[in-house]
Amino acid sequence: MPDLIKTCLSINGIERTFHIPPGMRLLDLLREKAGLTGTKEGCGAGECGACTVLVDHKPIPSCLCLAASCEGQEITTIEGLQTGSELAPIQEAMASSGGVQCGFCTPGIVMTAEAIAREGLQAEAHQRLAGNLCRCTGYTKIFEAMDMLPALEAQDD
C-alpha cells in the first residue's frame, strides 16, 4: 500500500478532508469516498464526458483528474446544482425540453452546459458540448434546453 495523502477540497460547498492513495482519480474519490454516485464513468479515458464535474468552475473529466491534485479546489458535481429539491435552471430546462433519455450522459452534459451558461457561451454550445457523448438523444433537445436558459434565468430574477 502506498502512503495515503491528505487532501482537503470543497465538494458542493462543503469542506472535506480525505486520506487517499496518490493515484486515486477524482471520479473515484467522488463516487466511492464521498458517496456521490451522480457522476458517471462511461469510458475512464477522457473520451465520453460522462464524468464531467466543475473544478474551480471549469468542466473537467474527473476520470482523468488525480484527486490529490485538487487540493484546495472547489468541486461541483451534479448533486451540488439543485437547492433542496429545487432544480437549477439548466436541470429544469433539460426536463422540459426532453434532453434526457437513458440519463447516463446527463450529469456530465448538465455540468458542461452549466459551465457554458455561466460563461454566457451558449452560441458555442455545439462545439463546447462535443466532448460529452450522448448515444440516445441526437443532441437536439439538449441544445433546446440550452436555448431556454436565458428565459428561465430571467424568470428567476
Binding site: T37, I78, Q91, T106
Partner: peptide, 21 residues
C-alpha cells in the same frame, strides 16, 4: 402531450441509481 418524463428528475439530479452506483 409533452409532460416531463417520469424519470427525468431522478436522472437530472444524479439520484437515479444505475447498477455501478
Amino acid at each position: 402531450g409533452r409532460h416531463v418524463r417520469i424519470d427525468a428528475l431522478s436522472k437530472l439530479s444524479g439520484e437515479c441509481r444505475y447498477v455501478a452506483d
